[in-house]
Design a protein around this nucleic acid. Structure first.
Lengths: 196, 196
DNA sequence: CATAAATTAGAACAAATGTTCGAAAAAAAA
DNA sequence: TTTTTTTTCGAACATTTGTTCTAATTTATG
């Protein structure tokens, strides 16, 4: 599958920030995505900024920041009731995991800031931050993250109705959306964070 | 208390990266820590790099990265069901730990595992973990944690109706509960975690 | 096919940045 | 005090970088 140029750029910026710790320069982007002119990259960057996917400071090198994917995460276990005689962190005592921001990049986890109230009835509010596992493909009944038209990330239920697969919001004011080639699964939503 | 210059620089770099998303320039550092020459900052940066606290790419603007990993997060205890008669934060009630960003951290934070669905319409589900600030007394309209009869911790809206104060669930299947001497406020709910 | 739109390229420029050097100032050590 | 070390300064320089313009090229559209 050939990626959209802007998506390619966006992913490289995110990759670079997460792995190197700082934003790439325009020329580094140009080399990576096989563009021979900085102005071409410049053009795409302005487009991404207009879409609200990127931010940057004018005339300041390496100040690109991604607006949607806020940070990388690391998971730590939560321990519940302790089974007699077992160590505190034994697998049987683990009642779940919680994800916390961490400077070190984890390959499969990232976080997405939820936009809108289409998942309100699932207790996912506008502005919430959901943690997504890229290594887990959402199955029927799961809440997953999906990329629409290579430009927009959305969080929805996934399910099959009458043999067709749909993205299903948890809000009666929104409609189901049949899955087609423009919708690509990103991963499964595994946890949620909210500031109140 | 006067901070060591290098510590001051290190903290500013970390602050800038965490809040702006990119490294400061040498001149920005100079201005922040009151040094009038870029070479002075340069000298300190090399020192910090020698100590292994910083990394950077030569001749590349804004490529400073901090090698310190865990400093920006601290852990607070999670409590579950409260054993009768025992204080809220007694060791026997602790079921785990959760990490919170340092800028939000204070000694008054702890976490509570939510029991039941009385706050469903506020997007707080059974099993969610809410972080509570003991130092902030919940006001009208806030979501707070309250201790009932010294045995049970609950999370509810707080509000005044006709001059009387009530704990108000976010679920029509539950009733308001007038506040009396058996109900003590614990603190304000400031954030929420969920495993999905 | 012709036309319009989007994408890419090239070159040049101004601005911001990292680096280096010597010397002054301040602080510490003797 | 004197000496040494550390810290700070100032200026200059080379490099990297973002930006802007026009034109070429490709892709879509009729």
């Amino acid at each position: 599958m050939k990626l959209n140029k802007q998506t390619e750029i966006l992913e490289f910026i995110q990759y670079k920030i997460e792995n190197e710790g700082y934003s790439p320069s325009i020329r580094e982007i140009a080399e990576k995505v096989n563009l021979k002119s900085t102005s071409s990259v410049h053009h795409h960057l302005n487009n991404l900024i207009e879409k609200g996917l990127l931010s940057k400071k004018a005339n300041q090198p390496r100040t690109l920041t991604s607006n949607k994917i806020i940070t990388s995460f690391k998971t730590v276990p939560i321990v519940g009731e302790i089974a007699a005689g077992s160590p505190l962190l034994a697998e049987e005592n683990k009642i779940g995991e919680i994800s916390v921001p961490q400077e070190k990049f984890n390959q499969n986890l990232f976080a997405l800031k939820v936009n809108g109230d289409s998942m309100l009835d699932a207790g996912i509010h506008d502005g919430d931050i959901v943690v997504i596992d890229k290594g887990v493909e959402p199955k029927n009944g799961d809440i997953g993250a999906f990329m629409i038209n290579d430009t927009e990330a959305t969080v929805k239920y996934l399910d099959t109705i009458s043999g067709k697969r749909y993205l299903i919001p948890a809000n009666k004011n929104y409609n189901n959306q049949e899955i087609n080639s423009n919708i690509q699964p990103i991963g499964k939503v595994v946890s949620l964070f909210r500031d109140i």
